[in-house]
């Protein structure tokens, strides 16, 4: 095991998969130069050369559209959106083309397309550079959606994504790039659809995604001192979603809190809550709570941004609420 940064885990996964498969091609804005704005493609140009990685113009529609075309013709297309917000320029390519082409052709088309995109708030980037858009893509059949919270998960899941024959949206978080964690020195992958229990506990189930996993873990530490034993579950992939791990946990604790940074309305929390309602309602001892960002664009002002992002305190409050503790 070696302790590395989340950004390096991404870079290592890309390099390893490019060594294994000659057909992996990387493109995106500034990915060649200086290792990209977040350093996630550092060293790739030097090792693999200009025919394996290319800078593109600022043209999101063709980055993703050509990703589909490359994938249809046998290239494993690993494309990057510098900020997820820019994918909105390419929604036709993502949702009308990538997501549907296999289905529309009766299974004749194969689309090994990986869209890496960096998302999230927390750095004062304002309303057009801080969004969490995963729910938009979860809604559309045909797209897999991955949200790693640790270097270990980022590397293992990205390697799986590159080997997958479907369009995958791989959402990294800007705040997580500098976080560190242990990663095996040997080749490994993490299967999609397998949640990870980041902390086991018996009193309450907290389901959290991406950066919010770290906040939920922090909350759990504080709650422990107050005699509350929280179980923290990170689904890791939202499509496919590991219902079983979530349901087993809720059946054990009888209480659930869902934490995500995206807005509340029609967010993944609504979906997970409904699944719990369908499959474990008889085990619930309290209504499910959600902790999310306000139903407003992400404001610039650091004061307001802090207010909108789910905080450790808000998670603690929600846990106490479902446990009927004042």
């Amino acid at each position: 095991m070696t302790v590395i940064k989340y950004s390096q885990a991404i870079r290592d996964a890309i390099a390893e998969e490019m060594r294994i498969d000659q057909n992996v091609f990387v493109m995106g804005q500034d990915v060649e130069t200086m290792g990209g704005v977040f350093g996630c493609t550092k060293g790739i140009l030097e090792e693999f050369g200009h025919d394996r990685i290319r800078n593109t113009p600022i043209s999101e529609a063709v980055i993703i559209g050509a990703g589909v075309g490359g994938a249809l013709t046998g290239t494993r297309m690993l494309v990057e959106m510098q900020y997820v917000d820019f994918i909105l320029h390419a929604m036709d390519q993502t949702i009308n083309q990538a997501a549907k082409v296999r289905y529309m052709t009766g299974g004749k088309a194969t689309v090994p397309l990986i869209i890496r995109a960096q998302q999230g708030s927390g750095r004062g980037n304002g309303a057009q550079h801080s969004q969490n858009l995963e729910a938009l893509f979860c809604h559309m059949p045909g797209l897999k959606v991955v949200m790693p919270s640790t270097p270990y998960d980022a590397k293992g899941l990205l390697k799986t994504a590159v080997r997958d024959n479907n369009p995958v949206l791989f959402f990294e978080h800007k705040v997580l790039y500098n976080t560190k964690g242990e990663v095996p020195d040997t080749d490994y992958t993490i299967p999609f659809g397998k949640a990870d229990i980041k902390r086991s506990g018996k009193d309450v189930t907290v389901i959290a995604t991406s950066w919010m996993v770290l906040k939920a873990l922090e909350a759990a530490e504080i709650l422990e001192k107050q005699g509350i034993d929280a179980e923290i579950i990170d689904p890791r992939t939202l499509v496919p979603l590991d219902k079983e791990t979530i349901i087993n946990s809720v059946k054990k604790t009888g209480r659930a809190v869902i934490v995500h940074e995206a807005h509340e309305v029609c967010g993944i929390g609504a979906e997970i809550a409904f699944i719990i309602m369908e499959l474990a309602i008889d085990w619930l001892d309290a209504p499910i709570k959600r902790v999310t960002s306000a139903q407003a664009p992400i404001p610039y002002s650091s004061k307001l941004e802090k207010l909108t992002i789910p905080s450790v305190d808000r998670i603690i409050d929600a846990v106490k609420e479902v446990m009927y503790i004042k």
């Binding site: 600022i58 304002g126 309303a127 057009q128 404001p299 610039y300 307001l304």
Partner: peptide, 26 residues
């Protein structure tokens, strides 16, 4: 913008500035 826009969304409608933009080409 009352602090809600920041550098990338500076706008002054009283003087016909319809706004900066975070999106290239916006």
């Amino acid at each position: 913008c009352g602090g809600k826009g920041g550098s990338m969304h500076m706008a002054d409608f009283t003087r016909g500035n319809l706004g900066a933009n975070g999106m290239v080409g916006g």
